[in-house]
Amino acid sequence: MIKLKKSSRKSKETLTHRKTTKIKELAVMQNDFYKQNDNDTIWWVDNDNYGEHEFSFDRKKIYNLFTDYPYNMTSEEVAIFDKENPYWADFFKDRKN
């Protein structure tokens, strides 16, 4: 355990951010990615969690379908996702209005 002085709050926040980032990087490295079609842009995360649908555009930043679509995505990412996944685009059509 690393001990920090009470006066080094900013250092503690930076350390916490580094630890969180490192954990996320490790999680990304441990994921298996696959594409539904060879020409798709989207990579899906192969995980064992029932009902959890995660995907990525760059295999670095992972989105959760139910919590991130379309709110935490760029308009370009949403357009790509909708084109490659018409079922989910229709399923979530009420989120876009």
Rank of each mutant, 00 (worst) to 15 (best):
Y34I: 03
F55W: 04
Q36I: 10
M29Y: 09
H53I: 12
D32Y: 10
K35N: 09
N39D: 15
D58L: 02
N37Y: 14
T20W: 12
Q30R: 13
Q30L: 15
K24Q: 14
I23M: 10
K24S: 09
F55I: 01
L26V: 03
S56F: 03
E25D: 12
N31P: 03
I42W: 01
K22D: 10
W44G: 01
E25H: 14
Y50G: 04
V45D: 00
S56Q: 03
W43C: 10
Y34M: 08
D38A: 12
R18P: 01
E25N: 15
L26R: 11
N49E: 15
T16V: 14
L26E: 14
F55H: 01
T16Y: 06
D32K: 14
T20E: 13
I23K: 14
T21C: 06
G51N: 07
T21M: 12
D46K: 05
Y50E: 13
K35V: 07
L15G: 10
G51F: 07
K24A: 11
W43K: 11
K22L: 11
G51E: 06
F55D: 00
D48H: 13
K19I: 15
H53W: 11
E54C: 13
T21A: 10
K35H: 11
H53N: 08
T21I: 06
D46N: 05
T41A: 10
H53A: 03
R18S: 10
Q36P: 02
N37G: 05
E54D: 06
T41M: 05
N49K: 14
D38Y: 07
V28S: 07
E52V: 11
T21D: 07
W43V: 07
E52C: 07
K19L: 15
E52P: 01
E54G: 03
K22P: 04
Y50T: 09
K22W: 06
W43L: 08
K35T: 05
F57M: 03
N31F: 09
S56E: 06
T21N: 08
L26C: 07
N39A: 11
N37F: 15
A27Q: 13
Q30H: 14
K35E: 09
N47T: 08
N47H: 06
W43G: 07
D40C: 03
K35G: 02
L26N: 14
D48G: 13
D58Q: 02
T41C: 06
L26T: 08
M29C: 12
S56W: 00
Q30D: 12
N47G: 11
L15A: 10
I42G: 04
N37H: 13
A27M: 12
V28R: 05
K35D: 07
I23F: 09
K22G: 09
N47E: 09
G51S: 04
D48V: 06
N39H: 15
Q30E: 14
N31V: 05
Q36E: 12
K22E: 12
I42Y: 02
K22I: 05
T16E: 15
H53R: 08
N31W: 08
H53P: 02
